[in-house]
Write a protein that binds this DNA or RNA. Structure first.
Lengths: 115, 115
DNA sequence: GTCGAGTGCTTGACATCTTTAGCAATGCTT
DNA sequence: AAGCATTGCTAAAGATGTCAAGCACTCGAC
């Protein structure tokens, strides 16, 4: 559940502050179906759906396929760049960057671990 | 008909002199289903099936996906590289990643707007 | 000839994907 | 508080993938 496709997509959508119906209006994917995907009730959504989501969410399509557990054979798809990628933290506004950096500084200053 | 996925797969199988049931024994794909694929009665076989066929037939998997009309796309440069250049937000621990994503979700949920 | 094995193919049943209609809960506006 | 919009979510139905069983045909061995 932690690393599932559903929670992955859910985190991204929520991090962007978008509702299920907003994503539906942009992608044509019904909000109910999107909900089922995010709750891991759909094992294998079609590639067309995943492509549309990757475009709207501005995340790497092959990376999303990987998250979905689909077999992909990209000759040189390797880890060095991808491993540092945090899709949820992409495309930040300048205000958000500042807020996050401040928050990270705060986190590290108190040296606490997560709940 | 001529350039369809079905005729494409059928041509390869016949050129190798293999029966439907031989391919079934090697891939686990039922001969009846394979027959339907070759006769274009199946629009979108699963990636697992296509992968097995590409392995047995010794053809390129991405090439086969292309033949099947699946969307295949290389990673987009702007989503992969540009948005990641926030030096303070690199090399995060997993706890920090999660905390930041949660915090960002919180930030954006307060300013949620729809268009 | 006929018998058995092998061939491509069809049918019916089941599983999964995908949508439409609608629900309860929350929030906003007056 | 009342009323309306929006949220995530579910149930039922339709469309499609997938398989097991079985069909009709061919062909070689006896």
């Amino acid at each position: 559940m932690e690393n599932s496709l559903g929670s992955f997509l859910s985190r991204i959508r929520n991090s962007k502050g978008w509702s299920l119906r907003h994503v539906e209006s942009q992608t044509g994917i019904s909000n109910s179906y999107l909900c089922q995907i995010e709750n891991d009730q759909i094992r294998e959504p079609s590639l067309q759906k995943l492509l549309k989501l990757s475009e709207l969410y501005e995340i790497s399509y092959p990376e999303l396929l990987k998250q979905a557990g689909y077999p992909i054979r990209e000759p040189n798809a390797h880890t060095d760049v991808a491993s540092r990628s945090i899709p949820q933290l992409e495309n930040l506004s300048s205000e958000e960057q500042e807020a996050l950096v401040d928050y990270l500084t705060f986190l590290r200053s108190r040296g606490r671990r997560r709940r």
